[in-house]
């Protein structure tokens, strides 16, 4: 599968006081394959926005390489295939969403009736059909975020880079956005986005990248990670043999704790405990939390 994004040993430095430099991104390397949805996670100040800005060419890389579909990041060719949503959505207050789309569309190289049709259909898609001609200054934060998402979708980009994509959206808006992004993925669009909303990441992503202090500290496919994070366990009393179906069995005082990979194995274990006249003290069955994993990963890296 072709690579949408290839980042190799990226370093981004900003000048700070006293002629020194602050390193926002340090030797960062990762790839995003075509058609993937990849979440880019990290605490505040981890270097997420700096990485996205380097990918868009807003800040020059101090060293290393960034490529988008084989083109140097920030080049006109790279930007032609990329849709970008900035972290803070601000759009010309004196223009309406339709005028905003027309303006950006013309800069994208679109013209005339085709541009108008595409702009209107995207605005309808993001739920702004009623506010197409309302000046941006009269729109709420959530609506402005929708304008931002709409402008990122203009020109049918092959790659969407979205910084804090769900910022300002209500739960309904988030669900609509999820569906919209999934439909774009089905059309072959690659999505690379940063978010502090880990539930959104869990719902959307194929893979996650976690960075801290400008360095990549973890990179995981989400499905196996979620499998790994799931907890199925039983705490019981009695001499019951569960070693053949349990992942692990340990003693907790008089009771034992048995952990399982799947829910059916847990249910089978409960049956066996009852059959053997044992006593179930506690049952644990929960999906793993990405948030807990994220925090633990950051702690481990610190």
């Amino acid at each position: 599968m072709a690579q949408s994004i290839a980042v190799s040993d990226l370093v981004v430095r900003y000048p700070s006081s006293g002629g020194k430099y602050t390193e926002a991104v340090s030797s960062l390397s990762f790839e995003v394959r075509e058609g993937e949805i990849v979440g880019f996670l990290g605490p505040n100040g981890a270097g997420k926005s700096s990485t996205l800005k380097a990918l868009m060419g807003f800040v020059p890389a101090s060293s290393g390489q960034c490529e988008i579909y084989g083109h140097a990041a920030g080049s006109v060719a790279a930007r032609r295939v990329t849709g970008y949503l900035p972290e803070v959505a601000m759009y010309y207050p004196y223009l309406s969403p339709l005028e905003t789309m027309t303006f950006y569309g013309e800069l994208q190289g679109l013209r005339g009736a085709a541009l108008k049709k595409e702009a209107q259909s995207i605005l309808e898609l993001v739920g702004l059909s009623k506010w197409m001609k309302t000046p941006n200054r009269k729109l709420s934060k959530g609506m402005l975020q929708r304008v931002g998402i709409a402008q990122a979708l203009l020109g049918r980009p092959k790659l969407l880079i979205l910084d804090e994509v769900t910022s300002g959206l209500d739960p309904v808006g988030r669900q609509e956005l999820r569906e919209l992004l999934r439909s774009r993925q089905r059309q072959g669009v690659t999505l690379f986005f940063s978010s502090h909303e880990l539930s959104e990441v869990e719902n959307l992503c194929d893979r996650i990248l976690i960075i801290d202090k400008g360095r990549l500290i973890d990179e995981r496919a989400l499905a196996p990670l979620q499998e790994e994070l799931r907890q199925f366990a039983v705490v019981y009393l009695g001499e019951v043999e569960l070693g053949d179906i349990a992942r692990s069995v340990s003693f907790r005082g008089e009771s034992r704790l048995a952990s399982f990979d799947t829910r059916p194995k847990l249910l089978e274990a409960v049956d066996r405990i009852h059959s053997a006249s044992g006593k179930v003290v506690d049952l644990i069955a929960r999906e793993g939390s990405l948030e807990t994993y994220f925090i633990e990963t950051l702690r481990r890296a610190a």
Partner: peptide
């Protein structure tokens, strides 16, 4: 100042 520059620079514009 108004951060309208980002979506502008994201376009294929030199």
């Amino acid at each position: 100042k108004n951060r309208t520059l980002y979506p502008l620079l994201a376009r294929p514009v030199r």
